[in-house]
Write a protein that binds this DNA or RNA. Structure first.
Length: 280
DNA sequence: CGAGATGATTCCGG
DNA sequence: CCGGAATCATCTCG
């Protein structure tokens, strides 16, 4: 990656994106050492063209009508013959058929320039490829990182929601005592059937409706009541007598009211008054 | 605040 | 699956 970054830096140096001043040659020297091969191309080319006679003609060459053609195909074109050679020859100030192409020194320098051009072009292309692939890799790394962060975020959010939900769904965490009325009904029911405090499903449903709680809660209450009563009968003796009396009065009032044939066993326990397994 | 009361859950045996 | 027993977590009351 380090080498890659250097290469990338090199490119950026050359195209002036590093923030450093790269316009002037002497400023280029301040650039990273790796920039040298690219910066010095002008110097190299200048060294090749040492002929003092060429210097005064540089301006004329730059303004030459054939320069665009030379720029597009002259340098990169084939070594010999064809239109390109003719263009180069024209640009050099000669005519296509005046025999100047035979000049050995010219041909040598031209091929030198072309070699350098191609070498530099290749370097640029390679550096460009390395740079873009480096960027692509960086982007994919960033994408991966972001995906990982997203996944982690999702997971932690899900966990938080699950915890919240379980806490709210678990009745233990928001336990409320039943209303006085509900407790009253349940106690009456329990103590009036102390001999067999095991109501069937139908009765449980009715109790649940009366107490505005669920059948499961009725079952919980009865289960808790049975075990706690059994554990300390003495403690509940007062309640037992109290509710027994209440029930007796209500039953007596009921029986004195009318001997209605409807639901003779309503609200009570099954006729069989023995515990399910005889354990009580 | 702490002890006891209370509703819910869990584990286990039948 | 139901109920007993133990236990948990919260509520209530002094």
């Amino acid at each position: 990656i380090g080498g890659m970054e250097n290469r990338a830096h090199q490119i950026l140096c050359h195209i002036g994106l590093t923030g450093e001043e790269v316009d002037k040659p002497h400023n280029n020297r301040k650039c990273h050492n790796n920039c040298q091969p690219l910066q010095d191309i002008g110097d190299i080319l200048q060294q090749i063209i040492t002929d003092e006679m060429m210097r005064p003609r540089k301006h004329a060459l730059n303004c030459h009508r054939m320069k665009p053609a030379l720029f597009t195909e002259g340098v990169a074109g084939p070594e010999k013959g064809g239109a390109s050679a003719a263009v180069v020859a024209a640009a050099a100030g000669g005519t296509p058929d005046d025999g100047s192409l035979e000049h050995v020194d010219y041909k040598e320098k031209l091929s030198q320039i072309r070699e350098i051009y191609h070498a530099e072009l290749e370097k640029y292309e390679q550096a460009c490829n390395e740079f873009t692939s480096h960027i692509e890799r960086m982007v994919s790394i960033i994408h991966r990182k972001f995906r990982a962060i997203q996944t982690q975020l999702k997971q932690s959010t899900c966990e938080a929601v699950m915890i919240l939900r379980s806490r709210f769904l678990d009745a233990r965490w928001k336990r409320r005592n039943f209303s006085k009325q509900a407790t009253e009904i349940l106690n009456e029911c329990f103590y009036s059937h102390l001999a067999n405090p095991y109501p069937n499903e139908e009765v449980k449903e009715e109790l649940a409706k009366k107490c505005s709680i669920t059948v499961a809660q009725i079952a919980n209450w009865l289960g808790n009541k049975r075990i706690r009563y059994k554990k300390n009968i003495a403690k509940f003796q007062e309640d037992a007598s109290l509710y027994a009396m209440k029930t007796a009065t209500s039953v007596s009032s009921l029986s004195s009211q009318a001997n209605s044939p409807a639901t003779p066993n309503s609200g009570g326990y099954p006729a069989i008054c023995t515990p399910p397994d005889g354990r009580l």
